[in-house]
């Protein structure tokens, strides 16, 4: 029976919700100084992580994060059926290189900063489809590799726009298993690419807010849920500017008083000079795999909707004056 698990327009629910049995997060020094420093598994001393280049540091971060997550279940990479991972670098090299070292069958993903939700969604579908037993979903980003690829050379004296965001140096990995103990992944809403004609690469939160709210609205409608069903709806990296726009859009779309926060706002202290907040694949990945899942484990959050948001442009399309297409995927995680 085709589409038996599909609900409404864009949502699927699982017969046997896959379980998040273990997770790990590794973050950079700046993220470690933020309000959640204690909740991450490892905080880097510097941005090179003992490597020659930032790119190598990024891939090492991803590799080590996956290993840490597996360690918590006393598993080795060969016990895992599939690795789903992505990052922001051209040709997603950080993930490719990490997969080379881990020797886990690998599918690389690109969803810009929405990658953590994308990898979780796909992993959960593959598990509920009975294809695999154990899948690792992961994502990472590195401030300096992203900065040099998308913006200016790092040592050029450039004033940041107040709406600009700070790409997080962070990696997160989740071990999804067909059965086990831990929070369950109940359903996902795969987002549409939404483009509201925004071109400001220094204000991606504003461009992405529309996609985030569209996905949240669709998710709630598809499953006939009230807007306060979730204890926390958390967007990936809208930052302060983007999340204030999202709040206005909630009103416009009749999503009444959701328990809404944004990972980009949560990740740093106000005093850390990060502009509008954090961004990057690692931003939602480390918040999920650090503080948020910990809170779920303690029972402080029972129902979480992670809505990771991604801006799908490249420096080339920006130079050519094209607007920023955006996407958001929602992942519903619930503690039974």
């Amino acid at each position: 029976m085709p589409g038996r698990k599909k609900r409404g327009q864009q949502t699927v629910v699982f017969d046997n919700p896959p379980v998040l049995t273990a997770w790990a997060a590794v973050v950079g020094p700046k993220e470690g100084e933020g309000p959640w420093g204690q909740d991450f598994d490892y905080v880097l001393d510097d941005y090179l992580y003992g490597e020659q280049t930032w790119e190598l540091a990024e891939y090492k971060m991803l590799r080590e994060t996956v290993k840490m997550a597996l360690n918590k279940r006393n598993l080795l990479p060969e016990d895992v059926d599939l690795l789903l991972a992505g990052d922001l670098l051209n040709q997603i090299v950080a993930s490719n290189f990490a997969a080379r070292d881990l020797e886990i069958p690998f599918m690389g993903l690109y969803g810009a900063c929405s990658t953590m939700a994308e990898s979780l969604s796909l992993g959960a579908m593959l598990l509920d489809g009975d294809y695999y037993e154990r899948v690792v979903a992961a994502a990472c980003s590195h401030h300096y590799t992203a900065e040099r690829q998308y913006r200016f050379p790092t040592q050029q004296g450039v004033q940041k726009a107040p709406s600009a965001q700070w790409t997080a140096t962070a990696a997160g990995a989740v071990l999804l298993e067909a059965s086990g103990s831990g929070p369950g992944l109940k359903g996902v809403t795969v987002g549409k690419v939404i483009d509201m004609g925004q071109t400001d690469a220094n204000d991606m939160g504003s461009a992405m807010a529309a996609a985030a709210v569209h996905t949240i609205k669709t998710h709630l409608d598809d499953l006939n849920l009230e807007s306060d069903y979730y204890d926390l709806i958390v967007s990936g990296d809208l930052g302060q500017v983007g999340s204030s726009i999202a709040r206005q859009l909630f009103v416009r779309y009749g999503i009444i008083d959701p328990n809404y926060k944004d990972c980009g706002v949560l990740l740093y202290d106000q005093s850390q000079a990060v502009g509008s907040g954090g961004s990057g694949c690692g931003c939602s990945a480390c918040m999920l795999c650090g503080p948020l899942l910990k809170k779920m484990q303690k029972g402080e959050i029972k129902r979480l909707l992670l809505v990771a948001t991604g801006a799908l442009m490249s420096p080339v399309t920006s130079f050519q004056g094209q607007s920023i297409p955006c996407i958001a995927h929602a992942v519903a995680i619930e503690m039974d």
Binding site: Q156, G157, Q159, A161, A201, N202, D203
Partner: peptide
Amino acid sequence: IMDATKPTITP
């Protein structure tokens, strides 16, 4: 010029 035209005009 930079502040009035942000983000069009870069350094």
